[in-house]
Measured scan of single mutants.
Amino acid sequence: TETYETTDETEARKIAEELKRRGLTFRIERHGTTIRIESD
């Protein structure tokens, strides 16, 4: 499991693209301005 936290929408998108490219599944949670991406 890898966890990323960012407040930057663009960075979050880049992380999501990278995880997809590596064939990982992940979920995105939003907590206020923080975007949390957690891979399975």
Results as ranks from 00 to 15, higher is better:
residue 12 A to S: 03
residue 6 T to L: 07
residue 27 R to T: 12
residue 21 R to V: 05
residue 24 L to E: 03
residue 4 Y to E: 00
residue 37 I to C: 02
residue 30 R to M: 11
residue 30 R to T: 08
residue 33 T to M: 12
residue 21 R to L: 07
residue 14 K to A: 12
residue 17 E to I: 09
residue 6 T to G: 03
residue 24 L to M: 08
residue 22 R to A: 04
residue 32 G to I: 02
residue 23 G to F: 03
residue 19 L to W: 07
residue 22 R to Y: 03
residue 9 E to F: 08
residue 33 T to Y: 08
residue 2 E to D: 07
residue 40 D to A: 11
residue 10 T to I: 11
residue 19 L to Q: 00
residue 40 D to I: 15
residue 20 K to Q: 09
residue 13 R to M: 13
residue 33 T to P: 09
residue 14 K to C: 15
residue 15 I to R: 03
residue 11 E to H: 07
residue 16 A to Y: 07
residue 34 T to I: 14
residue 20 K to P: 00
residue 10 T to N: 14
residue 36 R to K: 08
residue 4 Y to M: 02
residue 5 E to I: 14
residue 13 R to S: 09
residue 9 E to K: 05
residue 33 T to K: 12
residue 26 F to A: 05
residue 12 A to V: 05
residue 20 K to L: 11
residue 23 G to P: 00
residue 20 K to D: 05
residue 24 L to R: 10
residue 30 R to W: 13
residue 27 R to I: 11
residue 29 E to C: 15
residue 39 S to I: 15
residue 18 E to S: 12
residue 35 I to H: 01
residue 25 T to P: 06
residue 19 L to P: 00
residue 40 D to M: 14
residue 5 E to T: 11
residue 15 I to W: 08
residue 37 I to H: 01
residue 7 T to K: 08
residue 29 E to R: 11
residue 4 Y to L: 02
residue 30 R to G: 03
residue 25 T to D: 10
residue 27 R to V: 09
residue 38 E to W: 15
residue 28 I to P: 01
residue 39 S to M: 13
residue 7 T to W: 06
residue 36 R to I: 11
residue 25 T to W: 12
residue 35 I to M: 02
residue 1 T to H: 13
residue 37 I to M: 01
residue 2 E to N: 10
residue 38 E to C: 14
residue 17 E to V: 08
residue 15 I to M: 05
residue 9 E to V: 08
residue 32 G to Y: 03
residue 23 G to L: 02
residue 5 E to M: 08
residue 40 D to F: 15
residue 27 R to S: 07
residue 28 I to D: 02
residue 38 E to Y: 15
residue 10 T to M: 12
residue 7 T to N: 10
residue 23 G to S: 02
residue 14 K to S: 09
residue 36 R to D: 00
residue 24 L to N: 03
residue 6 T to D: 00
residue 40 D to Y: 15
residue 15 I to N: 00
residue 21 R to A: 10
residue 24 L to F: 08
residue 8 D to Q: 03
residue 4 Y to F: 08
residue 32 G to L: 04
residue 16 A to P: 00
residue 34 T to E: 03
